[in-house]
Simulated assay, not measured.
Amino acid sequence: MTRDPLRELLDAVLADDDGAAVGVEEMAARAFTSPTHFARVVRRRTGEPPATLRRRVLLERAAWLLRQGRSVTDVAWDSGFDSLEGFSRSFSRSFGIAPSRAGELAAHRLPAPSGIHFHAPAALWVDAEPTEASMDLTAVLVEHDLADTTALLDLAAEAPDASLRTAAVSGLTPAAFDDADLSPAVLLRTQVHTKEVWLAAIDGTDFPDLGTAEVAALRQRHDEVAPRWRSFVADTAQRGGWGDTVVDALCEPPQSFTLGGIVAHVLTHAAHRRALVRHSLDPRLEQGNGDPITWLETRP
């Protein structure tokens, strides 16, 4: 895997030198380039000169260490300052309070055009670019669930019929509203039918038929319900309606649920079913492990 070029620059700027002050020449040498070119590239990529970026991140680290109970003197030396007075002056100018009062800070981060910050205990935090939309976590989880269900239906379409009808996990009690049959075919049917049922409750339509557990039919039903489910989640998020309540007349007796609770409920049990199906059909996980972080990395 190739390294991120920005990370390469940051490593050159922020490498730990046991508290010693580091000049642009030394930073550039780490990056195997000239000081002039290095300073220009860092400033273009981060919005800060290398020395300013390094000093700010070290001050953020200093604030974090002070809030953990480290002494001002120790932190001053660790942060590359050659005098306690110089450290106190720089810290006070940056945070608005003396280092001895760092415990009063709500956070250790300082304003940064790059969004690059110290992240405890020994890492960096890079904010999303201001021009980019922030990640909508609910939308990501919903999209991952739909995509992973599609992948499992495709995997099931290639599996022998016997493996679709046999549960690989025994002795596991499913949720009260799930079928006791833990075969992949039935689990996938429940996965699809659950969204059909909740959308019917939200839309006020009739209870949908359970239908067949044949993979081809389930794939078609999933392709039909997925955009409806995605649209419901997007519309609810846009109008801030997660706290809205729906009275589910399909329950006996009718019950009330918040829209946020419905989505959280569906995602929780969907992840459990997907894990069971994947374990049944692909015990060696040759088709991936269904992890959202891996899925996000491979999205186009």
Rank of each mutant, 00 (worst) to 15 (best):
R221D: 01
E224M: 08
D248Q: 12
L250H: 10
D291K: 04
L182V: 03
V277P: 04
E224D: 12
L199F: 02
L285H: 06
S256I: 04
G204Y: 04
G288H: 03
P208C: 07
E196G: 02
D178N: 15
R273E: 08
P254R: 06
S231K: 11
T190Q: 13
P253N: 13
E224P: 02
T245P: 12
L218N: 11
A180D: 08
D179C: 08
D282P: 09
A226S: 12
G241C: 09
S231V: 05
G260E: 04
Q220S: 15
T212V: 10
H222Q: 14
A176Y: 00
V266C: 13
R284K: 10
S231I: 01
A270R: 00
A234Q: 05
A234K: 01
L210M: 09
G260T: 02
S256Q: 08
G261R: 11
T190H: 13
T212G: 12
G240Q: 08
A180L: 05
F177N: 11
H269E: 05
I202G: 00
D206P: 03
A200K: 06
R189V: 10
A271V: 00
R273D: 07
Q220K: 14
V266G: 04
E224S: 11
G211C: 13
P227A: 07
A200R: 04
L182A: 03
V263L: 02
S231R: 13
G261S: 15
R230N: 00
D235E: 12
T212K: 10
D223T: 02
H272S: 06
G260I: 03
P227K: 05
F232N: 10
A176N: 02
L182I: 03
D179F: 00
Q238H: 06
G288L: 04
